[in-house]
Nucleic acid binder design. Structure first.
Length: 742
DNA sequence: GATGATAGCGGG
DNA sequence: CCGCTATCATCC
């Protein structure tokens, strides 16, 4: 501490919204008590003033002699709950991001951009009780006054305008003293029916629980009542009624005076779940996800912060919701890779949820029909309590699964075939019976590759090392990694050849093929291209539930979580899309996706059927998914992970070095690899090698993998190596516990 | 991430 | 020598 500082000055540690910057120290104005942890402060940073979050009331490590003074204190009390600040700091440390980045995701939208709170207000008019008798002269003013006199509560100006009473009339009455006008805060309501049609599910009366559900509930309730940190893995087959267990458990926790956080992997799953919770537990529910408008999100955040809410439902960032007295955190479909954020901070919502449960001594329930290898291993090791649901509700059977060998289809009918004969006849049967079919292909667009018949060159993105996908709707080639889009060239740019051929079908092509095969069928395609607009996924789901759709075609968007009782057939166009990826999780992802989508069939009274098309009918992911045998898959997969030393057998950190050329990236990668090994010889360093996507958005990329028994030595060695290479640090992406290394 | 400093460039 | 743009180090 510099000796020049007056003794009376208090020093505070502040996280500022600058990536790569640590916590900074400032002098707090001496007159008042220093702002508490979680308060927002305006602080000078170089030539500008930024909004930061107080992280601690004592000095961080200051590197300069002179400490600058806080410019303004925005909150006298914590804005972010101190517990959330601690959670964000843990995230910053564990995932090797800056504290500013981690805290930014915990803030509501306006505060994130350094602005003050942003409540929406409306001007309301009410009669002035102080105004004596007397009548305004004009007929409009008299009518307005009569209308307000009859109203039980103040009325907003927009509502009055709808009654034909203009703002001018109201203001004239206010000026004469007949009315009083004031500003009232109105909440933007994401539950409003036009904002999100969450008409699915929502049965008000809970169905009777099965014996298994009752047993699971009682074990979990006991764990919640213990009021200490416990993580439970709720491993229940598809259709076994995990949601009912969450609901009953949440109700018990709320009745005990504590609060509940529910995480779902997808925005599209929140409305149905929120609707269900609302129907059963009442209105003290908030939702938090990036699909809300900034205003809605802001209002929901403040409702939670004020303690007006018992249950928060949202996607991964909701794990930072400012809930206090937390008793239960549910992570639904815990195996989903969407819980991992693919930009800084690269945190995993499930793992942060477990840490939050630990910090706040709450019960954490991880639910899945296909648990991640990580969670299954943790349960095997006794770190998580395993709770099982092995049967579907109402004794409904799991779907019968048929695997179709596409090599035979190609041999018989050519390699351009998208729908096998067994799948076509099964769809025809469903159409005849008025039942629904769900068709999955995890690839959007019309054709995934356009290539020259003469020289074989395929058209690549100029900025990324990937082929462009042809989208027929806009008749353009598009890159699925950057925003690049271009017209289809007339001739090959490499050799001038005139015949450009398309290959590799996406969902757009499936829709066209099906329309030709079944002209009368009502088709609906659900992928990122058709579901661009807000609320469109919810509308699509509602249309399926109303049975306005015969065949639903889509990407993994449709595979997750939804409950479609009238779907009796599921067709997987290609189980091989994921298997082809050069990633250690390829088999796991394929097994999970297949099991999940097969689980969408036969949830109603008619038994379901699933048809999986593949070129590798013997692959263990396909076989295990077809047999709906999690254990068989787990046994094979964990053997593979142990053998090749991949998670969860070891900790893994993926490091990407970006540079203007591949040779430069590789040279920097070699330098970094050497420095890491020098810093800690126990760290296993693989690479550098050109990344699978060696060029992205114009940057060339080299890849390093760090492996070790524990994460901390990996991070420490990496930090030590990057500390002496600040220029390299700025071009390096660090991914701790990567969900994918491609 | 945003900023001011600095280097590199063509035009007068 | 000026004004413009691209690149870079710095931020308690």
């Amino acid at each position: 501490v510099p000796s020049s500082l007056a003794k009376t000055d208090s020093l505070i540690a502040v996280a500022v919204p600058v990536p790569g910057l640590g916590v900074l120290s400032y002098r707090a104005p001496g007159r008042r008590a220093p702002p508490p942890k979680g308060a927002r402060v305006r602080v000078p940073l170089g030539p500008r003033i930024v909004t930061g979050i107080v992280v601690d009331r004592q000095l961080a490590s200051a590197t300069t002699a002179e400490l600058r003074e806080v410019a303004a204190v925005l909150d006298e009390e914590s804005f972010l709950p101190p517990a959330v600040v601690d959670l964000a700091l843990w995230v910053a440390d564990y995932y090797a991001s800056g504290p500013g980045d981690a805290l930014a995701i915990a803030l509501p939208p306006a505060a994130r951009r350094g602005r003050a709170t942003a409540f929406r207000t409306v001007t309301v008019a009410e009669l002035d009780p102080g105004s004596g008798p007397g009548e305004p002269r004009g007929p409009r003013q008299r009518a307005a006054l009569a209308h307000l006199a009859a109203a039980p509560a103040p009325i907003g100006l927009p509502a009055l305008a709808r009654e034909g009473i203009s703002g001018a009339t109201v203001r004239a009455l206010a000026a004469q003293g007949f009315l009083r006008l004031r500003q009232e805060v109105v909440e933007r309501d994401p539950f409003a029916p036009d904002a999100a049609p969450w008409t699915v599910g929502g049965a008000i009366n809970p169905p009777p629980l099965t014996a298994e559900q009752t047993a699971a509930l009682s074990r979990l309730s006991d764990a919640a009542d213990a009021r200490r940190f416990i993580t439970a893995l709720l491993h229940g087959v598809t259709g076994s009624g995990k949601s009912e267990v969450y609901l009953a458990l949440a109700r018990a926790v709320v009745a005990g005076g504590r609060r509940v956080l529910v995480l779902t992997p997808e925005i599209a799953l929140t409305p149905a779940l929120a609707g269900l919770f609302r129907a059963r537990l009442g209105a003290r529910i908030a939702i938090q996800h990036s699909g809300l408008s900034d205003g809605e999100r802001h209002d929901q955040w403040h409702r939670i912060r004020r303690g007006e809410v018992d249950v928060v439902i949202g996607t991964r960032s909701a794990v930072f919701a400012p809930v206090d007295r937390l008793g239960l955190i549910v992570v639904d479909e815990e195996h989903e890779s969407s819980y991992k954020q693919d930009e800084r901070p690269r945190y995993h919502g499930r793992d942060v949820a477990v840490m939050r449960g630990r910090m706040e001594e709450a019960l954490v329930v991880l639910g899945s029909a296909t648990p991640s290898l990580e969670s299954a291993v943790n349960a095997d090791a006794g770190r998580y309590a395993r709770v099982r649901l092995t049967t579907r509700v109402l004794g409904r059977p799991l779907a019968a699964v048929r695997v179709v060998d596409m090599r035979r289809e190609y041999a018989a009918r050519g390699a351009q075939v998208t729908f096998s004969r067994p799948l076509l006849s099964a769809i025809a049967e469903r159409l005849a019976r008025g039942e629904q079919t769900l068709v999955l292909l995890n690839r959007r667009g019309f054709a995934t590759v356009v290539f020259c018949r003469q020289c074989g060159t395929s058209i690549e993105c100029p900025e990324c090392s990937v082929t462009l996908t042809y989208h027929r709707a806009d008749r353009r080639l598009r890159c699925h990694y950057c925003d690049h889009a271009q017209r289809v060239p007339r001739r090959c740019e490499a050799c001038g050849g005139e015949y450009l051929e398309q290959s590799g079908a996406g969902t757009e092509r499936l829709e066209a093929d099906l329309a030709q095969e079944f002209p009368a069928a009502r088709l609906l395609r659900v992928d990122r291209d058709t579901m661009r607009r807000r609320g469109s996924v919810a509308r699509a789901i509602a249309a399926v539930a109303r049975r306005d759709v015969d065949v639903l075609i889509g990407t993994q968007m449709i595979a997750k979580g939804h409950d479609f009782p009238s779907v009796t057939l599921v067709g997987v166009i290609s189980a091989d899309v994921g298997l082809g990826m050069a990633d250690f999780r390829a088999a796991e992802r394929t097994f999970q996706l297949l099991t999940q989508v097969v689980g969408r069939a036969g949830r109603g009274t008619v038994p379901g059927e699933a048809i999986i098309q593949t070129l590798y009918p013997q692959h263990y992911s396909v076989q295990a998914a077809a047999a709906q045998d999690y254990q068989a898959f787990f046994d094979r997969e964990i053997e593979f992970r142990r053998g090749l030393r991949y998670p969860p057998a070891l900790a893994l950190v993926n490091v990407i070095v970006k540079a203007a050329s591949l040779s430069r990236a590789l040279a920097d990668g070699r330098d970094l690899a050497t420095a890491i090994s020098l810093a800690d010889s126990t760290v296993i360093v693989l690479g550098p090698a050109p990344a699978v996507h060696a060029k992205m958005r114009g940057d060339y990329r080299a890849q390093l993998l760090l492996k070790g028994a524990r994460r901390k030595p990996l991070r420490d060695a990496l930090h030590a190596a990057l500390a002496t290479r600040p220029d390299l640090a700025r071009r390096t992406v660090v991914d701790v516990d990567p969900v994918s290394v491609v």
